[in-house]
Amino acid sequence: MKRIFFFGMAIGLLVASLPTWAQKDMRRLIKNNEAFAAAQYKMLMKNVPADKMPRYYDPAKDQLQVSGVDWWTSGFYPGTLWLIYKATGDRELLAAAREKLAIEEPMKYYTGNHDIGFMIFCSFGTAYAITGDPQYKQVVLTAAETATKRYRPGMHAIQSWNKSRQFNAPVIIDNMMNLELLEWAAKNGGSKRLAEIAENHANTTLKNHFRPDGSSYHVVDYDTATGRVLKRVTHQGYADESAWARGQAWALYGFTMMYRFTKKPEYLAQAHKVARFILKNPNLPADKIPYWDFNAPDIPNAPRDVSAAAVTASALLELAQYSNKTQQASYTSDAATMLRSLSTTYRSKPGGSKGFILTQSVGHLPAHSEVNVSLTYADYYFMEALERYKKWVLK
């Protein structure tokens, strides 16, 4: 998870020197996307039952799939409503955002897996950042304490999924995103132990999840007592040794975010290494929207993953804040290319996709689930990336 709002930036971007025409072009693009998002989500609001959250839209079936609040993506929809409200001031979206927070709040006690961070920080954390409402802050603090119940001291990590026939104590790269809940809470009234757990988890991930080229496995399975690695696999990617695109995006975002909170140089170094893997990869298309797996055998005909691009763009814009001038320019330029591509080729038609903003994301291709669909988290990180570009890059 993220947050453009939860920290102050002292470092200015080199790209403040962007040509005036380029700044105007991006300002128009962002404003257009904000208005488009508001119109789309007013439509989506009408399609979602009061007690449910949208999950994805499948264009092949013209079908909107919804979920209960206990599904891992439930926090993204209210979070996106808050981001669009912040951008536009539309009170109709504000009312809808508040209504969805009311049904999401019980998830502050959720212990079924690691995803309480996505559920609560992307919804209540975003709401608190915009409103300063102390009730929202308390929900975040409660959720952070709940998240620690999955911490396994012998592993020095938070167990992502429960034990199954496939895994003993799996930790997935996605879990890096949920450390923001802990780090933020530790600095905003919560126990210092929250940050210690987050950093232990990040250190364990840094040690065991990455290959020499900077790419990440999806899952590392552990012995809970000793912390011994039992196996490394890429559950949602093409093969165990392949680089699942969204997994690389989670890694980039997660270690950039951890550097923000800790200023530990090893986290920043890893973020740069992952960024190089993504941006210099020979299989990254010219429009910077990755295939669902960097090693998919059917490239260039493999599905793209717009959600991976949205997460990556947002992460690059933050990483640029901690970089030298050359890196700043490169990261910002690549993020801008992604945002332009997402705003054109991969954006829904007005009134389309049942109200989602973006198209062509991939959830879990090996399971034939959510392939070439609109996903809530793609929309969320796209709106976050637009906000970050506007805040940090444009004059």
Rank of each mutant, 00 (worst) to 15 (best):
G12L: 12
L14P: 03
L18I: 06
L18P: 00
P19T: 10
R28S: 13
L29M: 14
N33P: 02
N33G: 08
A35Q: 13
Q40A: 08
L44R: 02
A50W: 08
D51K: 13
A60R: 15
D62E: 12
S67A: 14
D70F: 14
W71C: 05
G75R: 01
L81T: 03
P106E: 12
M107D: 03
K108P: 01
T111Q: 15
N113G: 03
N113Y: 02
A127R: 04
A129R: 02
Q135R: 12
V140Q: 02
E145K: 15
G154H: 07
H156A: 13
Q159G: 10
N162F: 07
M177G: 02
N178M: 05
E196H: 12
R211Q: 11
R211K: 15
S216K: 06
Y222Q: 09
G237L: 06
W244F: 12
R246T: 03
T262N: 09
K264Q: 14
Y267T: 04
L279F: 10
P282K: 15
K288L: 03
I289V: 15
D293G: 06
D293W: 01
A296N: 07
A309K: 00
A309C: 09
L317M: 13
Y322H: 11
Q328P: 03
Q328T: 04
S333C: 06
L342M: 13
T345P: 00
T345M: 10
G363T: 02
S374Y: 03
A378I: 03
